[in-house]
């Protein structure tokens, strides 16, 4: 069952063309996976991990939507990018404040662990893709 799920997910991942969309997809999956694994440590750990992932995922999704709205060949790219980053930052701060004020019992380790882990997916996915391309290129040269 896990193998079937893995093959479906990898097929879906291969169908996504936009690199940013791939990153958000991996963030979503890893948030779910960490949330499920955190259930072994208790309910508080599980929802703390899911909250941390959601705080990372929602601003990234907003960034993705803004990126998808850009018309091709538009020359206001830098302005759009900086505006999207500002929106992302302010949304993150709002979500953090809402979490710390509204949620009374929070497992800080799982919360920040998931948040930091999902933030670094922005680094991991492009590096993994670049490595895969490099390996494919090397295989093409050697054969």
């Amino acid at each position: 069952m896990i193998e079937a799920l893995f093959s479906v997910l990898s097929k879906r991942f291969g169908q996504i063309e936009s690199p940013l969309e791939r990153i958000v997809f991996v963030q979503f999956l890893s948030t779910l996976a960490i949330g499920v694994l955190s259930c072994f440590f208790g309910l508080v750990a599980a929802y703390s991990a899911l909250l941390g992932g959601a705080i990372s995922l929602l601003p990234a999704y907003i960034l993705l939507r803004r990126y998808n709205k850009l018309p091709v060949g538009d020359d206001s790219g830098l302005k759009q990018a900086v505006t999207a980053e500002l929106v992302r930052l302010s949304l993150s701060v709002t979500l953090f404040i809402a979490t710390f004020v509204l949620v009374e019992r929070l497992n800080v380790l799982f919360f920040f662990g998931t948040f930091i882990g999902t933030q670094f997916i922005f680094l991991v996915v492009p590096v993994a893709q670049a490595n895969r391309l490099r390996n494919r290129y090397r295989k093409g040269i050697s054969s």
Binding site: P19, I55, G77, S92, F100, F112, F115, F122
Partner: peptide, 25 residues
Amino acid sequence: LMTQLFISLALVDAVPIIAVGISLY
């Protein structure tokens, strides 16, 4: 370049967002 810019901006912004999160905590 626009795609790469968005990804790099998100990565550069990750560290201060983590710092903001810890300081808000």
